[in-house]
Amino acid sequence: MASQGTKRSYEQMETDGERQNATEIRASVGKMIDGIGRFYIQMCTELKLSDYEGRLIQNSLTIERMVLSAFDERRNKYLEEHPSAGKDPKKTGGPIYKRVDRKWMRELVLYDKEEIRRIWRQANNGDDATAGLTHMMIWHSNLNDTTYQRTRALVRTGMDPRMCSLMQGSTLPRRSGAAGAAVKGVGTMVMELIRMIKRGINDRNFWRGENGRKTRSAYERMCNILKGKFQTAAQRAMMDQVRESRNPGNAEIEDLIFLARSALILRGSVAHKSCLPACVYGPAVASGYDFEKEGYSLVGIDPFKLLQNSQVYSLIRPNENPAHKSQLVWMACNSAAFEDLRVLSFIRGTKVSPRGKLSTRGVQIASNENMDAMESSTLELRSRYWAIRTRSGGNTNQQRASAGQISVQPAFSVQRNLPFDKPTIMAAFTGNTEGRTSDMRAEIIRMMEGAKPEEMSFQGRGVFELSDERAANPIVPSFDMSNEGSYFFGDNAEEYDN
């Protein structure tokens, strides 16, 4: 993207840094990872977990959730003011799984939030270390993106479920800051804005008074975040219109849905970061690795190297396929839920299948599930090659597409044709070009129609051997075009429920 120079890199967003050079960025990201790792080690000690239990991804998720809940100030305040039966607002906890007599047992633990905050700050040299908290939120978000298709949420806001490739980060909490905003897809931002506008339509006082002023500035800020994701002048001009509207209503909703559809071809720039579970960072720190000293990046080879040398386990339900569970977590670790499966298959070195073909449910185990038949197995999170994460949407291309997802959002900077089903997408653009945004709409449609099938995206960008740390010898991959490109292809993934 041309304006790259004016933006802070995501590592800076990730670490609240002012302008830093590459070495400083690597050190501050490393410091953040160190903090998460030290916190995780301490929690495993508190909970008396064995090494194996500490490497269980379900335990990692519970521990991450506990610290996120302990620092969720708004919710904590709300819980104190609106006490609900049987919930102690000062405590947080969740299921911890232990191996007892050759069987997995679930144990519900409860801790004072104050105590968890103390352990977290102690692991982070006394700081609140917001960057580390956001990092864990993005890992949870990436896992949700890989596990669930947001059909219901899309339909509720009037969008087409086939636009799911635009929904990265749709389950990120509001408090995820600049680093969170960077990884949100165009569809996620559109959905947040539509929800806001709908509230304004239904509630006369939404934009009024002292609160209304705050609401208005939040609305304009979200519009600017979305505008910054678009790469064409016409899309940005249309966002200006939406932002400046005196009284946002149905016309703005129409414009936003139009823009979301246009992003299936004229893709937005959305950041991709490899955020790993805390149970990967903990053992690495415990083994003596100093992330701050060595430096770390979320968008280069580092996460690949770390996963190459990590042992992570997962509980497996009786009829689940461990290899499929591994694929789910591998995609989440690489922030690749909406990437082209052919690119992923090449990088991973084994075939990556669409969601609907995987015999696996989510990673988390519900409290009512029976533990008797639970097994555990090693997650295979290694890769054959590594590639640089991208934040450009890439230019655009036609490809055989599917009944489910009709476009992709690249996660890796790797040369390819970008699949999208042009006739299906263009069919949504018939007729409606009147109104105050008509010239911009016409211009956007013209650009979409001009998108050429034979153009290559990320020209000359390749993948790298894991021994090639400096990215000196790019390998331009070859793809098996007979395979499906979309992950949520004609899909039956479970729906995400809060």
Results as ranks from 00 to 15, higher is better:
6 T>D: 11
7 K>F: 11
8 R>A: 11
8 R>T: 05
13 M>K: 15
14 E>P: 02
16 D>K: 10
25 I>E: 09
32 M>V: 15
33 I>S: 05
35 G>W: 10
39 F>G: 04
45 T>R: 00
49 L>M: 01
52 Y>C: 13
54 G>K: 05
57 I>T: 13
57 I>N: 08
65 R>G: 03
70 A>F: 09
72 D>I: 10
73 E>W: 14
74 R>F: 05
77 K>D: 01
84 S>T: 00
88 D>P: 05
89 P>Q: 00
104 W>Y: 02
106 R>F: 10
109 V>N: 11
115 E>D: 12
122 Q>G: 00
122 Q>W: 02
130 T>N: 05
133 L>N: 13
142 N>L: 02
143 L>V: 14
144 N>Q: 15
156 R>L: 04
162 R>M: 03
167 M>Q: 10
186 V>Q: 00
199 R>E: 10
207 W>F: 12
208 R>K: 12
214 K>R: 06
220 E>N: 11
230 F>T: 06
232 T>E: 05
236 R>E: 05
240 D>S: 09
241 Q>H: 07
263 A>D: 13
268 G>K: 12
270 V>L: 14
275 C>P: 10
279 C>E: 12
294 E>P: 07
295 G>N: 13
297 S>T: 08
303 P>G: 10
304 F>Q: 13
305 K>Q: 14
314 S>V: 00
318 P>S: 06
318 P>G: 14
318 P>F: 04
321 N>V: 02
324 H>V: 10
327 Q>C: 12
328 L>V: 07
336 A>Q: 02
336 A>F: 09
336 A>C: 03
338 F>V: 01
340 D>V: 15
346 F>H: 13
352 V>G: 08
353 S>F: 02
355 R>W: 14
357 K>N: 09
363 V>Q: 09
364 Q>D: 13
365 I>Y: 12
367 S>A: 05
370 N>W: 06
383 S>W: 10
383 S>I: 07
386 W>V: 03
391 R>F: 08
391 R>P: 11
403 A>W: 12
424 T>L: 03
429 F>V: 02
440 M>H: 04
442 A>S: 08
446 R>E: 15
456 M>Y: 01
460 G>M: 00
472 A>V: 15
475 I>N: 05
481 M>W: 02
485 G>S: 06
494 E>T: 11
495 E>N: 01
